[in-house]
Design a protein around this nucleic acid. Sequence first.
DNA 1: CATTTACTGACTAATCTTGACCATTATTTT
DNA 2: AAAATAATGGTCAAGATTAGTCAGTAAATG
Lengths: 155, 155
Amino acid sequence: MENKSISDVIEAYLKEILGNSAQIEIRRSEIANHFDVVPSQINYVIKTRFTIQNGYLVKSKRGGGGYIRIERVNLLDNVDVLNSLIQAIGDSIRERDAFAIVQTLYDEKVITRREGDLMLVALSKQTLDVGNTTVEAQLRARVLASLLNRLRYES
Amino acid sequence: MENKSISDVIEAYLKEILGNSAQIEIRRSEIANHFDVVPSQINYVIKTRFTIQNGYLVKSKRGGGGYIRIERVNLLDNVDVLNSLIQAIGDSIRERDAFAIVQTLYDEKVITRREGDLMLVALSKQTLDVGNTTVEAQLRARVLASLLNRLRYES
DNA sequence: CATTTACTGACTAATCTTGACCATTATTTT
DNA sequence: AAAATAATGGTCAAGATTAGTCAGTAAATG
């Protein structure tokens, strides 16, 4: 149970201070210093755990007074968010990214646990493996897009 | 059946620490070290004794903070219906027949209306069209089989 | 003796961590 | 102003740290 990497800890910390707020602004160096890691690790945590697929938008500014802003967003509600999500999917998507999207939909209570589980198997590598990873990723993008559109126009 | 192999011992050990918990997380190298076997033997034990048929789901992560998670799941009652439907699929199925199976699932109250709708889009000609009718039908069979298998248990 | 099951280890894959170097913006100096 | 300097965050590749695969060998079983 105590198998957390420092990246996991930082992720939890950021989500903790995010709390119910719509967004937070951090200083990369401060967080890095707080956990005694190199600053670029903060980029790693953000890049792997606060993606649009996970339901987060991240903006930053360099230079004096610079910051990193993390914003939690709803995937299907907001047109801009949906557009960036669709763009992120494109005509090809990896299993990991597709799974993150389903997880986010569940977290947002857009889908039930069971619906999410069914979506996951339909998008899984095991199911979609056709001996060609490129084709597989393309198929996954189409399946996911179909599912999202169904959810979008349903209710 | 008299002499227990080390794999049997490891199996018993894992089930012991699983106890009443819904799931456990282990480090492959730790268990391997504990029983003085090569790490890959842990994979062997898991692959042969902690299958979904036995009521276990296994998930893992590599790299720093990596782990192997073993979760006990509940196998459901509808197994009869599902088994016969899986039989009927074969390795290829037309959209019409797939839709009929989904309808049956709904009629038998194995799935909800919404779950059925999601399954239908994932199985539709529009979603699975890859320019080759044969491949498309094979793909549909795999997606449907995966969905049905997923319905056999809940986590 | 034949077949199935168990075990091993070399190789592969995924994820995390670090640091050198780059880019941008604000502030100070000339 | 323009130029220099300071103060941020970004990128990328190498190395570290896990787990996965697979084929070959050994052991157990019938």
